[in-house]
Design a protein around this nucleic acid. Structure first.
Lengths: 343, 343
DNA sequence: GGCGGAATTGCACACGGTTGCATAATAATG
DNA sequence: CATTATTATGCAACCGTGTGCAATTCCGCC
């Protein structure tokens, strides 16, 4: 075992071993038609024997393309995000791109640090999921000259592309489902204020009420934090109303989990006393008790589409700026007409 | 909007603007003591104004270090894996490393492709989680001269470092929990054959039986596939026995979910008729009904430790080769003495 | 005033590839 | 056989940084 590794074998070593110039080796490795068939085969064989591995660094330096993209997420461990990343990675790999992954923890300054690091590594493109600080990208974006695609975070500017779920439509459908079951007191349990997807889902909820001729009651709106704890607390407030709701549409499944806990803690039964609808269709939605009615987001597909869009941008094409994917209402047993158990 | 971006501004542009050589700029940017204080400040200011971003490619080319690591996982979307990656990324970021993430889908040939790509990008180190093809790394490893750390997959060779959970001990504790509740017919619902962690957990299960003086009954062992579907099927077999078990220790939470479904489908109640123990403590374990007794794996910490170990290796240190982390038994309501409900 | 040394900065090469252009060898053509 | 077209290879410059060594300037000191 040596101190100081014996230096990687480079293109020149292969050239020397094959008795040609490194230019020829370079061409041979990329199967250029400029190099003689036999010579090429021989060079590639020798390269294989020597364990030659081309340096993406050197190549990127001259070609100005690294075959690399950066992905920024709020939390990798978030099951919602993980599936999206999976979609990105899969189609990225398909096109020959390697992906840098970085957490932002929803901290703006970390997010900027991360994007800067991506820039130094000369990524060919960037995908940002569920960013809360989209605004901060504008200056860096113009500096970087790198295509960016946002997921679930439309940036209200030009030259920024985004993939989103059709929040309003899905929320309307979910609310209609409850209305159709005969609920009249339907609550909305949202995320923190100001998030675009929360705003849109809330809008869909109101639209559904309006179309059904039901009055909108502001006291039936409560805000959590997108996680079980917040949902739990927000639900407590709703249950404390003089006239509590018989159904609640939650911003996401995580909030719904908390809501369910609160409902049960109040001695009430789901769905007999309160029906619950979530959003996302996380794995847990199928296994929670009772199984949760929710809106499925095509997360994998969203990631794939984002990567597809990015590839088009990197290839100089001009894809649509804002792409909306439909959600799908999955009816399970957490919803039923008021006063009834699921049949 | 121009065709062909106007070329990134490089170190030389900064040098020209500051009226110095690029060498001086290089030193200034790295805060070298060799450069005059004022000159350094001025250069950095100008660099900032020009939007200069150092090329990690060029730097890596000459320094032979990229401040980059590669992470290979079977499935990013696997909630178990996602949390590990989060731990890796977090401490990696702390040390200034960017991480390449890639799926292997448990396909050996894809896994090799991925590692080869990492090699071309000249990563400083590699972490592999839950690989089923660890053996294949040996040749590539020697070629690459890059430190590798395995998670949950001890490689029976030299110079390979790994971070694992103490499977046998944890399995023993879980089984003891059931024995302590008075169960005598305890089944083991495993993963596919041949996986190391399955083997170890099975060993812990047997040890516990033996220490308690209970007979080992081969018919009480059934194998799934680590996912709900497999667990469901394996549990069906166990319930079809003339003398079915009153408790089952499952390889992981996913299998346990399937097992619970089977139990309920058979018209039995958990834990009154059958107690269930899982492994992993996924989020879903808290929210499934009844809440699942399981072994918590410190996933985030495992990722962090792997990265820490990698950093030591990259720094030329010699950390321990195989590090075992203890699991923690989390008792919830899916386990109770035979015939009893949870109190 | 000459001299030694410290503090700065410049020079030039290296890293490992890609690529336009020149060149040599070979084949096709008149 | 001379000329031209074609094919295969070499030459050399370049991408953007880091760094050892030389060179310059400035001081303090004898």
């Amino acid at each position: 075992m040596f101190k100081g590794s014996p230096r990687r074998i480079s293109i020149k070593d292969v050239a020397a071993a094959a008795g040609v110039t490194h230019s020829t080796v370079s061409r041979a490795m990329r199967h250029s038609p400029l190099v003689n068939q036999e010579t090429g085969d021989r060079i590639r064989r020798i390269a294989g024997e020597l364990g030659y591995s081309a340096s993406a660094l050197a190549r990127g330096l001259v070609t100005n393309r690294t075959q690399t993209i950066g992905v920024v997420v709020t939390r990798i461990a978030d099951p919602f995000v993980a599936e999206i990343v999976s979609g990105i990675e899969e189609t990225g790999h398909h096109y020959g791109y390697s992906v840098f992954l970085a957490n932002s923890n929803a901290e703006p300054e970390r997010e900027i640090k991360v994007v800067r690091s991506f820039a130094e590594h000369r990524v060919d493109g960037i995908v940002v999921t569920s960013s809360r600080v989209g605004t901060l990208y504008l200056p860096m974006l113009s500096e970087m000259h790198v295509p960016i695609v946002l997921i679930n975070n439309q940036y209200p500017g030009e030259f920024v592309h985004s993939v989103m779920i059709a929040n309003a439509e899905a929320a309307r459908e979910a609310t209609n489902h409850l209305i159709g079951q005969g609920h009249r007191l339907i609550a909305y349990l949202g995320d923190r204020y100001g998030h675009q997807s929360d705003t849109e889902r809330f809008a869909g909820y109101r639209q559904a009420l309006e179309q059904a001729g039901l009055p909108f009651q502001p006291e039936l709106v409560s805000h959590g934090d997108g996680r079980p704890a917040g949902g739990e607390q927000a639900m407590r407030k709703l249950l404390a109303l003089p006239e509590p709701p018989t159904a609640v549409f939650c911003y996401n499944d995580m909030s719904a989990l908390g809501a369910m806990k609160s409902i049960r803690a109040a001695g009430l039964e789901i769905p007999v006393d309160v029906s619950v609808v979530g959003f996302d269709d996380l794995l847990v939605a199928q296994y929670v008790f009772p199984p949760l009615t929710t809106v499925r987001q095509p997360r994998h597909q969203m990631g794939a589409l984002a990567m597809e869009t990015l590839r088009q941008l990197m290839g100089g094409e001009q894809p649509a700026e804002c792409m909306r994917l439909p959600g799908e209402l999955i009816v399970r047993e957490s919803t039923a007409p008021p006063g009834e158990a699921t049949q």
